[in-house]
Amino acid sequence: MARVEVLLPQWGMGMSEGTIVQWLKAVGDRVTEDEPLAEVESEKVEETLESPATGTLTEILSQEGENVEVRTLIAVIETD
């Protein structure tokens, strides 16, 4: 098994942080690459954060409503 870190991406040049609006998956859920993981609001626009890998979501490190900086570790996926 490999550990894949899910980082908050930078969707726009001026983006420095985002707010986790809603997690669409829970710890223990199976996810596939490019599957929606969470809704993130940045600069008044909601974006969908997609899974970077296929595996099991093992940790959620940023909670709903939390502001996080770009490239912050927000979740972990264990691959098969």
Rank of each mutant, 00 (worst) to 15 (best):
T32Y: 05
R30M: 11
Q22C: 04
P36Q: 10
E41Q: 07
E46L: 10
E43Q: 13
Q22M: 04
L37K: 05
W23S: 04
D29P: 11
V40N: 02
A38Q: 01
D34R: 01
V27S: 12
A26C: 14
E39Q: 01
L24G: 09
E46H: 09
S42T: 12
L24M: 11
E33S: 13
I20R: 01
E39R: 02
E43N: 12
K25E: 01
D34F: 08
Q22N: 10
D29C: 07
P36K: 06
E35G: 04
A26E: 14
E33W: 03
L24P: 11
K25N: 07
V45R: 03
T32D: 02
D29F: 06
W23K: 04
Q22L: 08
E35F: 04
E41T: 08
V45P: 00
E47P: 07
Q22A: 12
V27W: 14
E35Y: 05
W23R: 11
S42W: 10
I20Y: 04
I20Q: 03
T48M: 14
E43T: 15
E43F: 11
A38Y: 01
Q22S: 09
I20C: 03
V31I: 13
T32C: 07
T32I: 04
E46A: 12
V45N: 02
W23Y: 10
V45D: 05
S42D: 06
A38T: 04
V21W: 00
A38K: 07
G28Y: 07
A38M: 01
R30L: 15
G28S: 13
E43L: 14
D34V: 09
A26R: 15
A26M: 14
T48Q: 15
P36T: 09
L49N: 02
I20N: 03
T32W: 01
V31F: 07
